[in-house]
Amino acid sequence: MIQLKEVSKVYQTKTIETTALNNISIQVSSGEFLSIMGPSGCGKSTLLNIMGMIDEPSSGKVTISGQSISNYHSKALARFRNQKLGFIFQSFHLINELSVIDNVELPLIYRKTSARERRKMAAEALEQVGLKNRMKHFPGQLSGGQKQRVAIARAIVGKPGIILADEPTGNLDSVMGAEIMDILLKLNKELGTTIVMVTHDETMAQKTHRLIRLFDGSQVQ
């Protein structure tokens, strides 16, 4: 489904050159739940962002569903992200000015979906993460675990084939973290959603189909 071939990412600043990813080749199959681990700064986020096409590799080739990406700023790629990908971030990144339901609707705004249809889909997504009763709240009124569940609802509302999660439980305590993990596992099992997750938690990683370890930008396992 997602294929990275000899992908490298080098950050060039005035004084130093940082190699965040060094010649990585990975293949993620459809329906797979993959986790990525490694010490801080080893390039996990960079790898995930490249898989999600919100970052451009310095060299190498990224193919998604058989199509390779050439222009990272095209409208077509924006549409592709909109329909096929869902993101979950460590620090949630909800829009504080919008209510929970409006936040969840966000990906649908960039589709040709009617307002009523959007409401309905967002309500369903919130129900899936168990937050239907908080639709009218604002992010500031929610706990960290609830915020992350809203973020998951936003990632799944458009029924994407792939979800990319960067330390989704990183800011949560272990109980809430476990809840989030359960939701992701259920998504993967019941809907067949492909999931790539960065985590620091060994037990969570063990629950996924496959684990990749990075060290200093290179794959070590």
Binding site: I54, A78, R79, R81, Q83, F87, L106
Partner: peptide
Amino acid sequence: GVRKAFGAHS
């Protein structure tokens, strides 16, 4: 950034 990640174009 979030809007763009979820499919908003420039």
